[in-house]
Simulated assay, not measured.
Amino acid sequence: MIQLESLLPLQGALGLYLAAALLQLRLLGGERRPLRRIALGLPALAFFLQTLYLAAAWLQMGYLPVTNLFSTLVFFSWAMGGTFFYFELRYRIGAAGLFVLAVTLALLGSAIKRGVAISPLIPALDTPLFTLHVAFSFMGYALFAMAFSVAMAYLTPAALRPRSMPPRELLRRHNEEAVLLGFVFFTLCMVSGSIWAHVAWGHWFSWNIKGVWSFIVWLFYAGMCHAKFVRRWQGEGYAILSIAGFGIVLFTYLGIGLLLQSNHPL
């Protein structure tokens, strides 16, 4: 059984993600099949280690371990790792994966730096709706991070684009798919959160700052789902929106909790 006090599984995952990023750098000059397989296997193993850690924490604590900044950073990085693995398996995003791995490394590294700390679950959170709300939220966040990463690859100047980078048209489609899937998950997050709030406190929506900014995130990406059909927002415009949207996501996730006061349970 994995001990929650031990950071070894997370440190191992961090090392594997770092090795995968370095290998992706090695592949910038062109495809090499054996190295390509290793570059796919390393993040898969890292994701597996994180999954084991989260599963052990869930079993030992009795609830989804996402009750403070450390645990949400771990869960967010896990969701990012899974999202990267999905897009890499399905589309072989190549050098574009470097941006994804950089975000994953930043999240997981920040969690490890804080040290192990999983807060007890308050009674208002002790419901399956809490698990659904948080899981959908971070899956949406991870897909928005993927859209940001693909947008960064899309905007890379032609002179700096490596041969292993997918064509811009494919990157545009990946960006749109990530935004759409993220919007679906975040909509499920908002719906489950509203039902949870009604059950716990008797109202469907609270005007606390976290709830308001979550609604802003939802509105922004709802607009992006429409913007892909508007010619002037296609291509570079859509990529810029994806980068701006992830900035709003980071403010909603980190900025409010660290810089402002909120009565949101998390």
Rank of each mutant, 00 (worst) to 15 (best):
F76T: 10
L259M: 14
A44R: 01
Y154G: 01
L49P: 09
F246A: 01
T67V: 10
L35Q: 13
S71M: 06
G109P: 09
E169R: 07
A153Y: 03
A56H: 02
E169Y: 03
Q234G: 11
A227T: 01
T104C: 10
S192E: 06
F138W: 03
L181R: 08
Q234W: 06
K228E: 09
L266A: 12
N263S: 12
R37C: 08
V217C: 02
A102H: 14
V103D: 00
L16D: 12
G30W: 04
L10Q: 10
L219Y: 10
Q50V: 02
A56S: 15
N68L: 03
L64F: 15
V230C: 12
Y221N: 11
A102G: 12
L125V: 07
G193N: 06
T252F: 05
S214W: 00
G245K: 04
R173Q: 14
R32E: 15
L10E: 13
P9V: 04
W233Q: 06
V184D: 02
G182M: 03
L35G: 04
F87T: 01
G115K: 09
T156S: 02
L105I: 15
L28N: 11
Q50R: 05
L180I: 08
G12S: 04
S206P: 00
D126L: 02
N68I: 08
L27V: 04
A79N: 06
G193L: 00
A56K: 03
G237R: 14
L25C: 14
Y238V: 05
L25N: 12
V184C: 10
F85V: 10
V230G: 08
I2W: 07
T127R: 06
I240E: 10
R172K: 11
Q24P: 05
H264S: 10
H226Q: 08
L101M: 14
T187L: 11
F85K: 02
F229D: 14
P65S: 03
I256A: 08
W213E: 05
R33F: 15
M80K: 01
L108E: 13
V74S: 09
N208E: 15
A178R: 01
C189H: 09
